[in-house]
Design a protein around this nucleic acid. Structure first.
Lengths: 107, 107
DNA sequence: GGCGCATTATCGTTTACTATATATTTGCCG
DNA sequence: CGGCAAATATATAGTAAACGATAATGCGCC
């Protein structure tokens, strides 16, 4: 009962899209990047400062997420602000958080 | 409120392990394979029949999942039965199911 | 035009993927 | 016990994709 059966057919149909998003998440830089964005929009230089990634590399990772449609951008003068567009990503991140992050002092 | 902030520190610490598992899931064959196993243990030939994957390839993918500690095996005569060992995988699969599979006629 | 912020191009290296060929383990039959 | 067949695993190899670095380019503002 804890484990309600998943329909194989549906999983089969969705597998392509699912793995596309999983691949996008399956990189430490991108995952952390999305975690940052899960708390609200940030511009590239903000991200560069928080994560320890060279700017062009960062831009490239952001490009991957853009291509996958997971994030959107908003320009404000010279800065470009990124935010999460695909809410499914938020759902996944939340689950990942529960699964992988120690619950020590949550509440 | 729908989006309670995730602690960056914790995500940072867990990111390595998280991406390792994500990489394991981020392959269509392996994902479907785990979906099959989420409904209970199956032997290699069962899996081969259900998915359309050549046996050596399948065995290799299973090897990846074994190496990551996501599945266990049990021998019964000539057959080897696989099942999901890491319950975190089940949690992730369940979320993925909810996120990616149309809810049309779920009860 | 020049500077700051960001993207795109290019490239070399590493890793992933999958196919074919070969080996291992077990059970069976003579 | 010897040999064969079934089930699975490992080895090898070629192609493709991912990664991250450096270099060059684009865009907006002063």
């Amino acid at each position: 009962m804890a484990t309600e059966a998943l329909s194989i057919e549906r999983m089969n149909a969705a597998a392509g899209e699912a793995t596309a998003i999983l691949r996008a998440l399956a990189n430490e830089s991108r995952l952390l990047l999305l975690c940052q964005l899960s708390n609200g929009e940030l511009c590239v230089s903000d991200l560069e400062e928080r994560l320890d990634i060279h700017q062009p590399t960062l831009s490239q990772q952001l490009g991957v997420l853009r291509t996958e449609g997971l994030v959107t951008t908003r320009r404000e003068g010279k800065k470009i602000f990124y935010s999460i567009r695909d809410t499914r990503v938020l759902t996944l991140l939340r689950t990942m958080y529960e699964v992988f992050c120690p619950k020590a002092e949550r509440g």
